[in-house]
Design a protein around this nucleic acid. Structure first.
Lengths: 307, 307
DNA sequence: GTGAAAGCGCTAACAG
DNA sequence: CTGTTAGCGCTTTCAC
């Protein structure tokens, strides 16, 4: 039971393979008689024909594949694996809606190979949680020649689109939620150091009022200093950790950077980010793939806060 | 800056493309002089050559692609998206170690199309959380001609390998943990009805002592009947919900079917499943792909419990 | 309205 | 030890 090819269809329908291809791809510049069209279509169905993407990709130099490369946390936490699920799933869904298939890959180690991207001729890639260090090595020698969108990574290169939460608005909104400016901030580490710095700076808090999570003990020590203060926690999973420590999430506003507000108890002050904002993002990616000279407008895209 | 092909290498090294191919693929049946070998290898490097997988796949009728199809929960819960992350990530990692790339796809709707599998000529697929109903439609007409492993799905077809937690041992171990047989069970719904039934049956509990999660209210009603009883919760995310309801997880043993025991407070009685058990599974998949007549031994594989 | 044929980049059987 | 060549399945130009 071998797979049927257009050649098989051509033979069965007694037409040329070119004609079959025209019909299956609904090529507008060719006129095909309705008679042959239905005949071919029917036979294709009978033979359970599906197009062979390897062959088409080879010919067209377009694969219809989009890569999502997730960089593992340099400093792994129990919730590391949970952080980007929503992002991953959302991207997959949106790419799927546009007809793309998604190759998912975790990248690890300190000299990752990006060969897959070139071997598979990906049409575009999303990089999540990339650190500048491990990435600049590659972009130094060659870009990828394809659209690259980086998520939660402040990569210094105008080639790439950068997507991240709208931290600035977040801090404003959080202040409003607390009724006062927060006095401390607990945050999860980003692989990208620069992004971490940006966040700290935007929070408007002094360095010593910010704790970047490392361990339960470190957190405990830090929180002890702010027992009755109002504060901010970035990342809902980390917030759970904070709750265990403080016994409550009162006087705390949580920024749900992992898009999972639901895992928090009801009643907690929390802010989320619009997953729908990825729709235009994927649209842009698609635009870049279709038109070589698609207007690339903004290189920075911010996910909007919602409450 | 076009991508280099073996033809380019051949020209630059002044050898035939066959020779280049032999060298790059390290073909054992050919003997190549060290001189040409190093020459070719050097040039390949200089040109930043990577093999074009579309072309190779077309020729070899093997793509080096493995699909992971995740079936969305029919009855979605807030934690639905979190349930299979660990499984997904582990499978990707293991497939990657064997040189495969992974296509990830969520499947939804009630007449899903499996065309991708055939169009992309996947070498194998994992199906996660499949219900018999939506799946039998496809297997009725044609298998896929490739190894198919189903996870958390009790599909009635000897074609497929079925992987699931070792529920039987779990219940025994949970009993030991509680010091007595559990008096009730709260569980998360599986898409696969049959699997749900199996679990219920293995628990040894009467139907009315089992609650399959539907809503906060339903859970509340159910738990009220067992305030001081010892019980079992299947799935750690659901356990969090139970904790909010009961105020504690005392007298409860949790089966961490999502491999995320860490999200529970410390001190909770919990059981996990060996993610390492996926290693031989992926090995079997690989065996099936390499040898057409690989011994397929066991059709049922159980992930072992750990505490 | 339809078809012949080139060629995408690669592998491998066969010839030398 | 190395090269020639057919062919994987598809798209598309150009000719009829």
């Amino acid at each position: 039971m071998k797979k049927a090819t257009i050649k098989d269809i051509a033979k069965a329908a007694d037409v040329s393979i070119a004609t079959v291809s025209y019909i299956l791809n609904d090529v507008k510049t060719q006129s095909i008689s309705d008679e042959t069209r239905v005949k071919v279509l029917k036979i294709a169905q009978q033979l359970h024909y599906v197009t062979n993407r390897s062959a088409r990709s080879l010919k067209l130099q377009k694969t219809g594949l989009i890569g999502i490369l997730l960089f593992r946390d340099i400093a792994p936490q129990p919730w590391s694996d949970l952080k980007y699920v929503k992002t991953l799933y959302t991207l997959e869904r949106l790419c799927g809606e546009l007809g793309y298939h998604v190759i998912f890959m975790q990248v690890d180690g300190d000299a990752p190979s990006y060969d897959m991207i070139r071997e598979r001729n990906l049409d575009g890639v999303f990089l999540i949680n990339v650190d500048q260090e491990r990435f600049s090595s590659v972009t130094r020698f060659f870009g990828f020649g394809i659209p690259v969108f980086v998520i939660d990574s402040h990569i210094e290169d105008s080639l790439f689109h950068k997507i991240m939460p709208d931290f600035e608005s977040s801090f404003r909104a959080a202040g409003a939620l607390l009724g006062t400016a927060p006095e401390f901030l607990v945050m999860d580490a980003y692989n990208n150091a620069k992004l971490g710095d940006t966040v700290k700076q935007l929070s408007g808090l002094d360095e010593e009022r910010i704790y970047v999570y490392e361990s339960k003990e470190g957190l405990e020590d830090f929180l002890r200093k702010y027992t009755d203060c109002k504060g901010l926690v970035m990342n809902e999973f980390l917030a759970n950790e904070v709750m265990r420590n403080r016994g409550t999430l009162e006087r705390i506003a949580v920024l749900c950077t992992s898009h999972c507000p639901d895992i928090l108890p009801i009643g907690v002050a929390k802010l989320s980010y619009e997953l729908n904002d990825y729709k235009p993002v994927v649209g842009m990616m698609n635009g870049n793939i279709q038109d070589a000279d698609y207007s690339n407008r903004e290189k920075f895209i911010y996910l909007s806060v919602t409450s």
